[in-house]
Design a protein around this nucleic acid. Structure first.
Length: 894
RNA sequence: GCUGAAGUGGUGGAAUUGGUAGACACGUUGGACUUAAAAUCCAAUGGAUAGUAAUAUCCGUGCGGGUUCAAGUCCCGCCUUCAGUACCA
């Protein structure tokens, strides 16, 4: 009987879907286990072999946990608001909804082909109004809350104490200024190319995260989320999470907590400048101040004769993009203001400068420069010939460490670490400073000037903002005639005039026309999966109580700060408002590594006379040209004929090579533009889904990035064929009721133990190896005992579910293997008859000695812990004296 | 620069608490079956030296030191690669 994977896989995928085998119930006596994948954005290009890695891993865990007796929740959905569909709409006029729907159909088909055990009845799409109704609802919760600093939590805005003596208008303004979701005019990251504002997290090195377009700063009115109030809690609660250290440290880094002091420098009778420093101990070395060019105090303090130059500098720096600012890192610029301030400790008069190496957005937007002990100040002082005073004892001209204080008057000799606290205290007494903490984290800019996102349920009027009544949610996306921003730069929603203006009780309001960022929908989707059809709540209280937190969250590391920080923030707000019962949403996080593509390049001679194979490349001056990997075989040989046939530019090209034309390979991210995408569908057709699933796991550790390489796939495929042959010979099932022998039992129980511990520790590659060894051994032992082969089937079924279901059925089981339980192993089959100890003589030779198996554990331990025992050396017959040094060290003395 | 992860055969990668390094798989070579190929099965496969041979000896986990009877694993100092982040005072 042949292993016909095509019909087997089709049959079982249909069976699972029709019988809804993987649906899970919200009430059960069983312990729960919630396994979540980071849901995908349904892009137009479908899945490549990199996507399934995490899905397969989480699927194996889900299947394993089910057989271990857990009620498993394993849902899937789509993060379906997003840019590409909108950009496609701008180009073609097709409604993003249609594009998105089409892509989702394709994605689902591909996911189902992978045999993933999702409960599709819980599917959600963030762009469905029944879903974004609740995204809007949560937005309103944020809008209607403020952060109580004393309680260190979010509280309903109705409980806000309003200062006495405020007029009506002022009261509204006061309330608006305290909300967790508030409007502010701030310098935003404006991306002209994308026509929208981006969050700080979405800007990388002055370029947009998506597309890599330049980003400039521009003041605009925006909705902002007060995530900074949660900085401390977001930081502290990281401690207890079972997350990769790298992710935790990027989040810590992003929050960027630093402790120091705010110190005032008096300029004149009316003005003082506050600076933030983490090194108050170096204050005697502060020989000048530097302000950010945007600092508002400048207008008050700039000396008359410097005004022109200062204004010129301000203008230049405001027109600079973040990228340009960063490029200038080595060549610092700046202008003297003509004014001086008094150093509050040394009482010296020090000059005030402006420079764009000081950022207005961080700290107070002003620094005290200590050139002897800060690298940037050192560069700046050298360039502009400013005074450098060493205040910490060291050999070098510049030193950023700690040590003995010098040149600081009566404080000389104190240790700088100690002096830090002393200075802060002295200044505090004088009213010239205080201890403070600063964060790199900024509030989250929440609005986007886009069409394809959640509408913000807010109305504007002359006296401020007003939320839409909860009863009227969802606020649906209006139809528009074009998906481009309006001529006056408003978001596309403003094109629908009828929708835009509303009147309530005779009063006129305008709708907010900006939409939410893509992160909004993914901030809380893990909660909607619990109870996706609930019309009265985002999820029922019972379902939250039963399922939360997510036990295992698998996804890519690219969401280390963005998604994972935002959703933790929202979850904490919901926790404060008593909507959820856990402080953190995701208990354990695992990052699957990226699967990289293996791009192919050929060399073109620079004189354009032809192409040369790799071995001839050095002979000519050449440049690399990308070719589609479909023209290249596993031996890196180029199929020239096919290339010529399908690409006219190569039709008459000359190809030079020795024996065969070989291409140059490079490992890169898998992407359409690199022509290195491998589609999982092809693999499924050729080898079957079970082979693909096991191969992706076999490729290497889950967390590691690795290039896709089809070369080894036949090994896994052969394994499944061998596995099949363990159960069937040419005509029929060969499993029988014969009693297994000791060796059979040993092999099986070893396998059960190893595979289960490997799965629990996410070491899927070694689990696959173990399964291979097991099948090899049982084949060699000619085992046909049902007592062995049936449990083995269950062990393998998490990895290769289709083949196992098929064999399971053919063995006479009527119920799906999904409902079976994972076999237990017993230690008695695992014990070796003899214990082997390694022995070294004088540190050089190594022997194995075997202690008799009837040595009890206690006897061995006693022997080891006592001074010496006599043991027969294996190869010789003379007994040797063995000295056992306490702590398991065995040393021969002859 | 800082933070995090990693460096093991021709390749992907295994190695509980330090205890026979290279499991498992690919590839390669040889063999069986076949008219032939595919498929399948068997054997060998880190390097070097000696030997007809079984075998023996030495060297081997990025580099240099150290601890230890014993180090891929622990400690110190470097190098390289990947990822993230960056004028954050």
């Amino acid at each position: 009987m042949e292993y016909n994977f095509v019909s087997i896989e089709e049959k079982w995928q249909r069976y699972w879907r029709e019988k809804k085998v993987y649906n899970s119930s919200n009430s059960s006596d069983l312990p729960k286990y919630y396994v979540l994948d980071m849901f995908p954005y349904p892009s137009g290009s479908g899945l490549h072999v990199g996507h399934p890695l995490g899905y397969i891993a989480s699927d194996i865990i889900s299947r394993y946990k089910r057989t271990k007796g857990f009620n498993v929740l394993h849902p899937m959905g789509f993060d379906s608001f997003g840019l590409p569909a909108e950009q496609y709409a701008i180009k073609t006029g097709q409604h993003p909804k249609i594009t998105t729907e089409n892509n989702i159909v394709r994605f689902k088909e591909q996911l189902n082909k992978l045999g993933l055990s999702y409960d599709w009845d819980r599917e959600i799409k963030t762009s469905d109004s029944s879903y974004y109704k609740w995204t809007q609802w949560i937005f309103l919760k944020l809008y209607n809350s403020y952060f109580d600093k004393e309680k260190n939590k979010a509280v309903n805005i109705d409980d806000l104490k309003i200062p006495k003596g405020l007029e009506n208008d002022q009261i509204n303004k006061f309330i608006d200024s305290k909300r967790l979701a508030y409007i502010d005019t701030i310098d935003v990251n404006w991306c002209e190319e994308l026509g929208t504002v981006l969050a700080n997290e979405e800007v990388i090195g002055g370029l947009s995260e998506r597309g890599g377009y330049p980003v400039i700063r521009k003041p605009m009115k925006q909705w902002v989320m007060r995530i900074t109030d949660y900085a401390d809690r977001l930081l502290e609660d990281l401690e207890d999470l079972d997350w990769p250290e790298s992710i935790k440290s990027s989040q810590r880094n992003w929050i960027g907590k630093s402790e120091g002091a705010e110190i005032s420098f008096q300029v004149d009778n009316n003005n003082k400048i506050d600076v933030f420093t983490t090194r108050p101990d170096t204050i005697f070395g502060a020989t000048y101040l530097v302000l950010a060019p945007e600092h508002p105090i400048l207008d008050l303090i700039v000396a008359e004769n410097q005004k022109e130059e200062i204004n010129k500098y301000k203008e230049i720096s405001s027109s600079k993009s973040d990228l340009e600012r960063q490029e200038n890192q080595k060549n610092k610029t700046g202008v003297f203001t003509g004014s001086y301030a008094i150093n509050p400790m040394s009482n010296k008069k020090i000059p005030i400068w402006i420079s764009d190496y000081v950022l207005y957005g961080y700290g107070t937007g002003a620094i005290m420069a200590v050139p002897a002990h800060d690298e940037r100040d050192y560069e700046f002082a050298n360039k502009f010939n400013l005074e450098i005073v060493k205040v910490i004892n060291s050999k070098d001209d510049f030193y950023s460490g700690s040590g003995e204080i010098i040149n600081s008057g009566k404080y000389d000799g104190i240790d700088s670490l100690e002096f830090k606290a002393v200075v802060t205290e002295i200044l505090e007494k004088k009213g010239m400073g205080k201890k403070t903490t600063n964060y790199k984290l900024r509030d989250w800019i929440f609005t986007r000037q886009r069409y394809w996102g959640e509408p913000i349920p807010i109305l504007h009027s002359d006296n401020g903002t007003k939320s839409i009544d909860e009863k009227n949610l969802p606020l649906e996306l209006p139809e528009v005639d074009s998906y481009l921003p309006t001529a006056d730069g408003m978001s596309p929603l403003a094109r629908n005039d009828e929708w835009k203006s509303v009147s309530i009780d005779g009063k006129k309001y305008f709708r907010e026309t900006n939409t939410m960022p893509q992160w909004a929908g993914s901030c809380w989707y893990y909660l909607r999966f619990l109870d996706p059809k609930n019309e009265f709540n985002f999820a029922s209280e019972e379902s939250i109580k039963y399922w939360m937190p997510v036990d295992l969250y698998i996804g890519g590391a690219e969401h280390a700060v963005l998604h994972l920080l935002y959703s933790r923030f929202w979850h904490k707000v919901l926790y404060d408002l008593n909507f959820v019962n856990t402080k953190e949403p995701f208990k354990k996080l695992v990052n699957q590594g990226m699967i990289l593509g293996n791009s192919a390049y050929i060399f073109r001679k620079t004189d354009q006379t032809g192409y040369v194979s790799v071995e001839l490349e050095k002979k000519y001056s050449t440049q690399k040209i990308l070719v589609d990997i479909k023209y290249v075989n596993e031996k890196n040989e180029l199929n020239i004929e096919l290339l010529r046939k399908e690409n006219s530019q190569f039709e008459k090209a000359v190809f030079e090579f020795d024996s065969t034309f070989k291409v140059h390979r490079e490992v890169e991210k898998m992407s359409k533009s690199k022509y290195n995408v491998v589609n999982p569908d092809e693999i499924c057709e050729k080898f079957g889904t079970d082979t693909l699933r096991m191969y992706e796991m076999f490729l290497g550790p889950l967390e590691q990035s690795k290039p896709w390489n089809t070369a080894g796939i036949s090994g896994v495929h052969n394994f499944l064929k061998k596995f099949w042959k363990l159960y069937f010979d040419s005509n029929s099932l060969k499993v029988d009721d014969s009693k297994p022998n000791d060796n059979n039992l040993k092999v099986l129980h070893k396998c059960i133990k190893k595979v289960s511990s490997d799965i629990e520790s996410f070491s899927f590659n070694t689990a696959v190896s173990t399964l291979m060894i097991t099948v090899n051994e049982l084949t060699a032992q000619k085992c046909r005992s049902k007592e062995i082969l049936e449990p083995l089937l269950i062990v393998l079924s998490s990895f290769a579910p289709h083949i196992c279901e098929e064999i399971w059925e053919r063995m006479g089981n009527t119920e799906s293997i999904v409902y079976s339980s994972f076999p237990e192993y017993s230690e008695c089959y695992l014990q070796d008859s003899k214990k082997i100890y390694p022995v070294s003589i004088n540190g050089k030779l190594k022997y194995k000695i075997e202690l008799p198996s009837d040595f009890s554990k206690e006897e061995i331990e006693a022997a080891i812990l006592s001074d010496e025992i006599f043991i027969k050396k294996l190869e010789g017959n003379k007994p040797k004296r063995v000295i056992v040094i306490p702590g398991k060290i065995i040393n021969f003395v002859i």
